[in-house]
Design a protein around this nucleic acid. Structure first.
Length: 440
DNA sequence: AAAATCGTCAACCGCGCGTGT
DNA sequence: AACACGCGCGGTTGACGATTT
């Protein structure tokens, strides 16, 4: 492939947009770039197939489009991927597979091509070196079970890393006697929280009401400030390294909701990234409407709902669920956008927002399905992709989960998409007794 | 020092989907 | 209904610089 090469559509079988003209192929010259930039900046791209002619380029429209999207667009980030971006890619790949365009949408300034290249040239090797299966993201040679779930996840998800989640600590400075650092809620979770806390109704399925007053936030709450996009600044006389290892630092210094929030943050404070990035990314899993983070019992990443049949096939009347006779064979994969996930179920008033890229797993102790009616009024919308995973829990639990999912189906508010049923779920279906209780 | 191999990434290719005729 | 067209996507290629042999 050389810059000077010309070819014709007839001889090479190229795109229809190249049919009637000789087109250049290969790398773009600075002159070509300039022409394309000038044209698109002035007139927009409009119909790509018309661009080369208008811009005076001997390229096909497709090539112009690609060059613009992947290289010339002004909003591209360039440069190496940050650790945070890498984790986001891994987390999303676990959920989405090789859907690079979808993944790239969650990485501002990055293109699908860039993400794909990064995955193929870099991340892939790391995961393989860690013995992680590239499709399932589980450790190779380890059976699936509830107990093993945490261990099977990529290290980046829990113990060492931070998915793109709710709260970030900004840059930290230490002047020899004091550490100062900023806390800021990221845009995703702020949007969720603000709709729940401040606006209320527009985050609820139609016909439901939320008593906002019952979730009043203390005026001095961090949460309130964070939602309003303020930085919260902390200062203390310890070195950052010391703080990192003091699990009770925040709880000793703040009270009430703030202390609980802080305590949870502190516990999840990772220790490996500080030196290199001078940042404190935080894996704060959930923020609940009463301004607390959700229970520590939350089991990490929820994100997948599986069912044998298209979601819409499930009767929305919970009483009819017994219709399914072999619910697990050839399980499909349901992707729920705008889903709100219930916490472990102990307190219907403390529903938590499942964070983007993260999820709550419906454990055996979860009563999400059973409590559904009770808790419906406090559901709110999750603006990002979310899925729910059925783990190898009892069939009764699976049934509840399906009820839970099915209940969502009764709301047009939720946008439900059935993905390819061939997607490997990495699920140990043998450990489930699917039929006997299903019909009960 | 030269050749071989590796790694990265821009660019290409073919396919599928949506839309218009 | 059938076809043409444009677009976006994921898989793949190949140029080229870096590293190893």
């Amino acid at each position: 492939m050389h810059v000077s090469e010309f070819s014709t559509a007839q001889s090479m079988g190229h795109h229809s947009c190249c049919n009637k003209q000789k087109v250049r192929r290969g790398l773009w010259s600075p002159e070509e770039d300039e022409k394309l930039i000038k044209y698109v900046t002035a007139y927009g791209h409009g119909c790509w197939s018309a661009v080369p002619k208008q811009a005076g380029l001997q390229r096909c429209g497709k090539s112009c489009r690609l060059r613009w999207i992947n290289y010339l667009r002004p909003d591209l980030k360039r440069g190496c991927f940050s650790l945070q971006e890498e984790r986001t890619i891994i987390d999303l790949h676990r959920i989405l597979g090789n859907r690079w365009a979808q993944i790239a949408k969650h990485l501002p300034g990055r293109t699908d091509n860039e993400v794909k290249n990064f995955w193929n040239s870099c991340i892939k090797k790391k995961l393989i070196a860690q013995g992680i299966d590239l499709k399932t993201h589980k450790l190779i040679n380890q059976t699936t079970s509830t107990a093993n779930f945490q261990k099977e996840r990529p290290p980046s998800m829990n113990d060492q890393g931070v998915p793109a989640l709710g709260i970030d600590l900004g840059s930290t400075t230490y002047n020899g006697s004091n550490s100062t650092f900023d806390l800021k809620m990221n845009a995703d979770i702020r949007e969720i929280a603000s709709r729940a806390f401040l606006t209320g109704n527009n985050c609820l399925p139609s016909g439901e009401n939320l008593d906002i007053a019952s979730y009043a936030i203390p005026g001095s709450s961090w949460m309130e400030k964070l939602i309003s996009s303020e930085n919260i600044q902390f200062s203390c006389s310890k070195q950052p390294e010391q703080i990192l290892h003091e699990g009770n630092f925040f709880t000793n210094n703040f009270s009430g909701h703030d202390a609980q929030l802080a305590g949870n943050i502190t516990k999840r404070w990772p220790t490996i990234d500080y030196q290199s990035e001078n940042r404190f990314p935080i894996q704060a899993e959930h923020v609940s409407p009463n301004s607390m983070l959700s229970s520590l019992n939350m089991k990490g990443s929820l994100v997948r709902l599986e069912s044998k049949r298209p979601f819409s096939d499930y009767p929305t009347d919970l009483g009819q669920l017994g219709i399914q006779t072999v619910p697990y064979e050839g399980m499909g994969h349901i992707q729920l956008d705008n889903v709100f996930l219930h916490d472990q179920g102990s307190d219907p008033n403390s529903l938590s927002t499942a964070q983007f890229g993260e999820a709550c797993r419906l454990s055996d102790s979860s009563d999400s399905g059973l409590n559904y009616a009770q808790t419906a009024a406090t559901r709110m919308q999750l603006p990002k992709l979310c899925e729910i995973e059925l783990e190898d829990c009892s069939s009764a639990q699976v049934k509840r989960n399906i009820q839970f999912a099915s209940a969502y189906g009764s709301y047009e508010h939720f946008d439900i998409d059935l993905l390819d049923s061939s997607i490997a779920m990495g699920m140990d279906t043998d450990s489930i007794n699917p039929v006997t209780e299903w019909n009960s």
